[in-house]
Design a protein around this nucleic acid. Sequence first.
DNA 1: CGGAGGTATGACCGTAGCCGCATAAAGGCG
DNA 2: CGCCTTTATGCGGCTACGGTCATACCTCCG
Lengths: 106, 106
Amino acid sequence: MPSPLLLEEYCQFFRLLSEPARLQLICQLRAGPMDVAALIEATGFSQSHISRQLGQLQRAGLVSCERDGVRTIWSAEGALVDELCSLVQTRLKRRLENQLAQLQSA
Amino acid sequence: MPSPLLLEEYCQFFRLLSEPARLQLICQLRAGPMDVAALIEATGFSQSHISRQLGQLQRAGLVSCERDGVRTIWSAEGALVDELCSLVQTRLKRRLENQLAQLQSA
DNA sequence: CGGAGGTATGACCGTAGCCGCATAAAGGCG
DNA sequence: CGCCTTTATGCGGCTACGGTCATACCTCCG
């Protein structure tokens, strides 16, 4: 079993992904770098909220930014989140398949 | 990019892992089936709290229980959480290594 | 059946954190 | 230098959820 400290680190990481706003931002940026205006347009959240969430993700190293004059271009490199989501998706899918089989056999 | 509904599912899943109490329960159970008394002893949480958290994890299919008379033996099958934690750990490790390199080159 | 051990649930409190509003800070342009 | 655009931050409301206490529910045993 992981040490309590490491466990806490895991939790903080998973917490970042546990909020639709943040995960959506990451997924958007995985498609390619975007500026904040585009993220507002894509997600519908307020500018201040997006700024905060990006700040959290940046501190965790999940996104990075590059200033282009007055605008800030954000991007998300690394396939970690993709891999995590893929694993979870497989799990969710298998779970639904099992439930379906249960219903059909009944 | 994943559909909003799927994204929400991901978030709910990650939320389960974002709480030390729950992740600790899973990790404990990954070492082998245990009864509730042992989980109380191992985690220090109250019985009612543990019962609630196990309920959430069970609904998500992350743990399962088997009644042995009056006692309930809980277990966590499937290496999904192990894999997720392993991926995150690798990420955390690499991030620290990079920060260390930054400091040493400065 | 009555009581004891073990588990789930209702009620409640406290806090963390999401979210927007308003505003300050930072950077470009006439 | 003033002004505008873009981003970051202080403030506050609101809700969700972690955590506990008390209690109801279940299962076995005398």
